[in-house]
Structure formats: structure tokens, C-alpha cells
Simulated scan of single mutants.
Amino acid sequence: MSWRSRVFTTVCVGAVLIGGSAAATISTSAYADANCNESLRVVAAGGASGAAPELTGSAFSIAQVHPNIQMSVDVRVTRDNIPILMHDSSLRRTTNVEHVFPDRADDPVESFTYAELKRLDAGAWYGKKYKNQPILKLHDVLNYIGNSVGISITPQESLTDEGYPDTERMMQALNNEFASDKQWDQLLSSQLVEFSSGNAESLRLLARSQPDARIQWLTSSIPSDGLLSETHSWANSLGIGVDDLTESDAARVHDAGLSLALHNVNSTKDLIRALNLGASTIFTQTPALFDKICSDENPT
């Protein structure tokens, strides 16, 4: 029995136990069977952000304990050009900025220096046990991924005065960071670094700047066959929400030679759907859901 068939069976049983009935129909996959570790890449979105404050040391530490899990991060650049981990354009939702800098609570992240950001608590909003979590630099992630764990980086670019994404500033900050530590060289040369973004032009520039990095284009809907074919010339994969994709569109992505990355896979039902659509990469806030996927590789 293939690993994919074993996963289908296990997940379907889980759906019965959790939901009372198996809501999803398990279809026979049209995609080639392969060893689990080779065919399914599971990425912890912001670390284990379903169990700890996103993009913090606690979230990454929890994700670390799950086997075969990679990491994804959102990156912004401080006023003094330090790439830091932050999803939102402002600090209000995930820090205590309104108490430390009450007049700047809704100011852009990029208007703060890293020294100022170090004064903030990025964990207490999630719960008292996570109080005093610092905002991390991109460099800090190296402590959690070592030399063999993949990382997906989503650049969250600031806007220029003309209202365009400031890709050049982001690219320079990332390049400076990559040049600062040989650990990045090893990750890049092993194709364990990925850039993901909805901005195709930014991704093209980043791909030229770091040719060893993998590229994932994020979209909310599947483009035309012609655009998919063109995308294959500069991207490795297409990323979309697990609920935003039909079977026919999934087939078109595969036919274009692109890998399929499905996001927001946070339940058993989501997992069943993602596997049936032929996803090669799954982004989740709950990596514990996947602990048993790659076990029992050679059943009798």
C-alpha cells in the first residue's frame, strides 16, 4: 500500500472520530505515488501559530518538535534596514505598541528602528504565559532551522512615495542578511530557501538576486493556461488557499509543470482535500496535525 493511501485511510478515520461522519470523499489520486518525505512538504505558518503567538521563539520552538516540519515567516524592514519578522503593516495587533509608543500605535512597522522594536512585547496579546516575547530578526530564525530545515520567506514590502512596493529596499536588506552568515549559503545552495509573494514582479527580481532560492507565487484564483505556462518560466510553485481551488484548476496547475502549495490547511478535512488535489506543499498553523503522516514508511 502506498503512503498516500495510508494517509487517506488514517485521515478519513480521523474525520469520522472528530466530526461524527466522514464529510469528505476520498478519491484515487491521479498523481504519482512517492516516498512521503519526498512528496509532501509541511510548513508551519509563522511557526506553530495555532498554539503560540505567531513569528515568535515560542511558536518556532513548538513547531520544532514535530518531525519533517519546515518554517514560514513574514519579513518587514525596519527604519535602519534590519529585516524583522512581522506580518502586519502596523504593530497594534501583535504587540503592546499602544502602551510603549501611544502616539505611534498605528504607524508603519518600517518607521521604527530595531532598537525601538526591542522594547515591545510580541507575546502577551496571545496569553499571559507568552509575556515578554521579543520581535525577532530574520537572522534569529537560523537558531531554529539549522542547516537542513527549509524556510519560506514572504517579503512584506513597504510602499514608495509613489505607492509602489519598495522591492529594491527589501531585496537589499535580504541580500545583506544572506551575506552575513554562511548558514544562509548552505540553505540556499540546498534549495531550502523559498520566496513567496503575490507580487509577481517582486518575485522575478528576488529570483534574479538569489537564483538558488525557490519561488512561490501566491494567488487567490488560478490564472489562465497561458499565464500559468509563463509563470512556469520563473516560479517553482503556485500557492493558494485550500478552499479557493477546484479539482479542474488543480489539474491545470499540475499540467503547467508547477507544484501546488496549499495554505490554511488547519483541520483534518482540509488535509483530505489538500491531498486529493495533489498538493506537494501544505502550510498550516497546526503542525501537530501532521505528526503521523510520514510514519510507518514500510508497513507489512
Rank of each mutant, 00 (worst) to 15 (best):
S2Y: 07
W3H: 07
W3F: 11
R4E: 03
S5W: 10
T10C: 02
V11S: 09
V11M: 12
C12E: 13
C12N: 14
V13L: 14
V16P: 05
V16M: 13
V16E: 12
A22E: 09
T25H: 11
I26T: 14
T28Q: 15
Y31A: 14
N35V: 13
V43P: 05
G47S: 00
G47E: 03
A48K: 05
S49A: 14
S49P: 06
A51E: 14
A51N: 13
E54V: 04
S61V: 00
A63N: 01
A63S: 07
H66F: 15
P67G: 06
N68S: 13
I69L: 05
V73P: 07
V73C: 07
I82M: 08
P83T: 07
P83V: 01
I84P: 01
M86W: 06
H87A: 03
D88N: 10
S89A: 12
S89C: 06
S89D: 11
S90D: 15
R93N: 07
T95N: 07
T95W: 03
N96L: 03
V100F: 02
V100R: 02
P102K: 08
A105K: 12
D106M: 06
D107M: 11
P108K: 10
V109D: 05
S111H: 05
S111T: 09
T113M: 00
T113A: 00
T113F: 01
L117N: 00
L117M: 13
A122M: 09
W125C: 01
Y126C: 02
Y126M: 03
K129F: 13
P134K: 05
K137H: 00
K137F: 01
L138A: 14
L138Y: 03
L138S: 02
V141E: 01
L142F: 13
N143G: 04
I145T: 09
G146D: 06
S152C: 09
I153C: 07
D161V: 12
Y164H: 14
Q172P: 00
A173G: 04
E177M: 03
A179R: 15
A179C: 04
S180R: 04
L187T: 08
L188P: 10
Q191P: 00
E194L: 15
E194T: 15
F195S: 06
N199D: 15
E201N: 13
S202P: 00
L203Q: 09
L205D: 12
Q210G: 02
Q210W: 10
Q210H: 04
P211I: 03
P211A: 02
D212F: 11
W217F: 14
W217P: 02
T219M: 09
S220K: 11
S220N: 10
G226W: 02
G226Y: 12
L227F: 12
T231D: 01
W234N: 00
A235Y: 00
A235L: 03
T246E: 05
D249N: 15
A250W: 12
R252P: 07
V253D: 04
H254F: 11
H254G: 06
A256I: 13
G257C: 05
S259A: 14
L262I: 09
N264H: 14
N266S: 05
T268R: 06
K269C: 14
D270T: 06
L271I: 06
R273W: 10
L275R: 08
L277Q: 13
A279D: 05
F283L: 09
T284Q: 01
Q285T: 10
A288F: 12
L289D: 00
F290V: 10
D291K: 12
K292M: 14
K292N: 13
D296N: 09
D296C: 02
D296R: 02
E297A: 11
